[in-house]
């Protein structure tokens, strides 16, 4: 039964981790949706809270000592926050698949890849050993591993880095998930391998109609794969828009700053990359007002530095900037292709 509600609906999610200085809020009232048959990218630098948001959504922060302070995560109509671990386990790996940055640490070196994929299928689908194995081979075939039947009987160390990531993807899609969460799946790979993995993810998404929640720090990857983009900075969503709008006319100075700092963009514009000054804001010392204000070249004393800035709709997207309306044309003009 397909309904009009989004597949994944994150509302005002706040996550805290303990520190010597009390609980630190590393995800602060984050809201976003992942629609059905959609690809959403959450983009941010280290410390932005992008990975924790994803982990919190599927109940993976508590084992690490964190806590969900408030908020709700609805997946396919079910509330995940507060759900017991046993129930969550039934959903994770089945209706929600995962891929992580480092495929080797997610695969058990002691079992063949076929056994590991079959194990996931058996746990969630209760298939017989033979059927599960068949399913595993099919999954490997879907991620274009040549002669899947024989390679299924090999161990993870017999695969190259890019191939291991394919195996991970095969494992995550073996149960036909409705949602695939990919946390920096290509960061550890070479660019030529990355290009193929992105191509593969796009193809799998198109063929199966599943949704993909893709977490990355690379705006190039975002432009390549996303349909909708959520930009995070300092534990908050600072901008959210369709991919064409976001790149065509970024509304937040951070988004436009990130683009301007990219070497390829600088080359295109024919000058040195424009660095964002300073360092990334950290959870123990959020600046007052806008969290990006100490690094922002458009900062206005008072407007940007005193009260917290709300996330407000503008031009079809959402942006958290007190000067968004007046900066609209300035930031738009700064783009490469306009």
């Amino acid at each position: 039964m397909e309904s009009d509600t989004p597949l994944l609906e994150v509302r005002d999610l706040s996550v805290q981790f303990p520190s010597p200085h009390g609980w630190l809020t590393v995800v602060d009232k984050v809201s976003f949706n992942v629609g059905r048959n959609d690809i959403v990218c959450v983009v941010g630098e280290s410390g932005s809270g992008k990975s924790v948001t994803m982990q919190a959504a599927v109940g993976l922060v508590q084992p690490k000592g964190g806590r969900i302070k408030s908020g709700s995560v609805r997946f396919d109509g079910q509330e995940l926050v507060g759900m017991g671990n046993r129930q969550l386990n039934r959903i994770r790996g089945d209706a929600i698949g995962f891929i992580f940055q480092e495929p080797m640490s997610s695969l058990n070196p002691a079992y063949t890849v076929g056994e590991q994929i079959a194990e996931v299928v058996r746990r969630h689908r209760g298939l017989s050993r033979a059927d599960a194995w068949k399913r595993a081979v099919e999954a490997l075939d879907r991620v274009h591993i040549a002669s899947a039947a024989s390679r299924a009987a090999e161990y993870p160390h017999q695969f190259s880095g890019g191939m291991r990531q394919r195996v991970m993807i095969a494992m995550s899609i073996a149960c036909d998930p409705k949602l695939l969460i990919a946390d920096e799946p290509t960061t550890a790979l070479d660019v030529t391998i990355q290009a193929r993995i992105l191509e593969l993810l796009r193809e799998l998404q198109r063929d199966s109609g599943m949704s993909v929640l893709f977490i990355t720090h690379d705006l190039g990857v975002v432009a390549d794969i996303a349909r909708h983009v959520v930009v995070m900075y300092g534990a908050q969503v600072v901008e959210s828009a369709d991919v064409d709008n976001l790149f065509g006319a970024p509304r937040h100075p951070y988004t436009s700053g990130l683009l301007g700092a990219m070497p390829q963009v600088a080359l295109e514009r024919g000058h040195d990359p424009i660095a964002i000054p300073g360092t990334v804001a950290q959870a123990h010392s959020w600046p007052s007002g806008c969290r990006f204000n100490p690094r922002c070249i458009y900062r206005e004393e008072g407007t940007c530095t005193t009260t917290a800035i709300p996330l407000e709709p503008i031009g079809g997207g959402l942006v958290r900037c007190a000067r968004a309306a007046e900066l609209q044309s300035t930031l738009g003009r700064a783009m490469v292709t306009a």
Binding site: L198, D218, L219
Partner: peptide, 19 residues
């Protein structure tokens, strides 16, 4: 050509060599 360019329109348009 493997390095994705931060412009979705161009990404869809360009001819990429995928090894």
């Amino acid at each position: 050509s493997a390095v994705p360019f931060p412009d979705p329109e161009r990404q869809r348009r360009v001819n990429r060599i995928i090894l």
